[in-house]
């Protein structure tokens, strides 16, 4: 039974929906609910969260019945590397400037792929960074320092 659940598509979809709904109902308890004719800020999130929990239960049960498996795959490497590259971009934009942030993002994302050729990626990073600086900084005049401190 447990092994069957691990890959059960709708079971997990149900869990996702139930969690989302339940969390929103819980948070919304901190906002005043009001009444149907005079709704407070908590009304919508509570009602919607409740509906979502019901939907989630239905989907979960549906999953237990049908037992459909997850068919889309997910590469753990890409799942970690791509968001991390974005994170680095965000941090570097604030602290290091446009060029380092962009270079790290491009180089980092490229390394998430299956094929990774160092020289090719280096070239790509150089060309794309140069192109972006030309278009965004010089062309559109976005006010970001290219490298902090200069």
């Amino acid at each position: 039974m447990k092994i069957a659940l691990r890959n059960n598509k709708d079971f997990w979809a149900g869990i996702m929906l139930i969690t989302t709904g339940a969390v929103s109902v819980l948070i919304a308890r901190g906002y005043s609910f009001g009444s149907t004719m005079r709704m407070g800020p908590g009304y919508f999130p509570s009602v919607l969260g409740g509906i979502l929990v019901l939907f989630g239960l239905y989907v979960m049960i549906m999953g237990l019945r049908s037992g459909e498996k997850i068919t889309v795959h997910c590469s753990i490497r890409a799942l970690i590397v791509l968001p991390l590259s974005l994170l680095a971009f965000g941090v570097l934009m604030t602290h290091a400037g446009f060029i380092p942030a962009l270079a790290v993002l491009i180089f980092g994302s490229a390394s998430a792929g299956r094929e990774f050729k160092f020289v090719e990626v280096l070239l790509l990073t150089l060309i794309l960074t140069g192109f972006s600086v030309a278009v965004f900084s010089w062309g559109l005049g976005l006010p970001y320092p290219l490298i902090k401190g200069f």
């Binding site: 791509l82 965000g90 993002l105 094929e115 990073t125 794309l128 972006s132 970001y144």
Partner: peptide
């Protein structure tokens, strides 16, 4: 393999430029 890093770069620059905000980049991730 050459196309997707470019998509990532343009997406990130574009999203950042809306509010000049790194926070939006984290949300995008």
């Amino acid at each position: 393999r050459l196309l997707f890093p470019a998509i990532m770069a343009f997406s990130a620059i574009g999203i950042y430029s809306v509010n000049s905000s790194s926070f939006d980049i984290y949300l995008m991730a």
